[in-house]
Simulated scan of single mutants.
Amino acid sequence: MSERRQSASENEKSMLSASEQREAVRDRYSSIAETEDSGCCEPTSEDDTDSCSSGGCCDDTTLATKSERLGYTEDDIDAVASGADLGLGCGNPTALANLAQGQQVLDLGSGGGFDCFLAARKVGPTGFVIGVDMTPEMIERARKNIDKNETENVEFRLGEIEHLPVADGSIDVIISNCVINLSPNKSQVFSEAFRVLRPGGQFAISDVVMTAEVPQEFRADPESVSGCVAGAATISDLEAMLERAGFEGITIEPKEDSHQFIREWSSEHRLEDYIVSATIEGQKPNTE
């Protein structure tokens, strides 16, 4: 299947054009980035309360508890200054990646920078972390967090994950947290990831995968697309896309215990009937 046909197929699943999907995602996350303290939305009336449920109206304590349920430790949460953890992920890719001193790390869809700052601690002063996000407001927020975290080995770049502003073969490890499902062209994302990795480089992300056909009403709904629901792909589709990009050693493992927090993403729908969080890993062949 050609890249054009693959992209068209992915767009048909979401029932929104690529530009509509990007606009929905950009609008949602720019709004979240502009909140003062966290990614939690603040209802302005009783009518707004339900609409906030997917954003997770919460205080710092609730946000920390949510992060622990995603796989972060109390030490992880305490190590990063407030304002970087927006509670938007579905796992902990920094634990999955087994990062080491001196590595060059790339975070796809870095948001407020939480995973980047955790990764920076693990790679140390001889390593470096790049976060890429397509939302200017998120980049601005993340850059402010650099000073708050007194971190010198992190940089944030504005760009789309389908067209990474990163040099060929310059990255040791790619991480991402519940972001690639938002892309209207996942095949292109995986191809770009493969391009920027060094031979032997690791791809280790957390994301949602589709376990049952998502209802048509979700696929046509911008909020469902930007809320990590309608854009999820099946395990078999993801495996095929990663293989076409050139990755080997591909493993995709659903996390059944994620049903609990996915259930809380919506007060109106049983989202856990359609999607589940998963760890997704692969490696660029070592040609040396």
Rank of each mutant, 00 (worst) to 15 (best):
E20H: 10
L118V: 10
V208H: 03
M138P: 07
N153F: 09
A167R: 13
S191V: 08
S14G: 13
S17A: 13
A64N: 11
A119C: 00
P165C: 14
P136T: 13
V105L: 01
G56E: 05
N153L: 10
L16F: 02
D237E: 15
C40H: 00
D37I: 00
I139N: 00
A232N: 15
E248V: 11
S53R: 04
G89R: 03
C58I: 02
L96C: 01
Q216M: 12
L63P: 01
Q283L: 07
T287F: 15
G249K: 14
G87N: 02
C228H: 03
G227E: 00
V225L: 09
D47R: 13
G249F: 02
G111S: 15
V132R: 08
R22K: 15
S54R: 00
A24L: 10
G55W: 12
F203C: 11
R263I: 03
S14W: 02
M241F: 10
F261G: 00
S67V: 00
E243Y: 11
L197F: 07
D257R: 09
A204L: 02
A120Q: 04
A84C: 07
E137K: 02
D50R: 11
A64W: 04
T73W: 08
S19H: 08
D237T: 14
F194S: 04
L118G: 04
R195A: 11
L182R: 00
V80R: 02
S206D: 12
W265L: 15
R244T: 14
E256Y: 12
A100G: 11
A33I: 05
M1W: 15
E3S: 10
K144P: 05
N153W: 05
A220F: 01
L242N: 10
E42N: 03
I250K: 13
A212T: 07
Q260K: 14
E213C: 09
R219I: 05
E217G: 11
D59L: 06
F156C: 04
A240N: 13
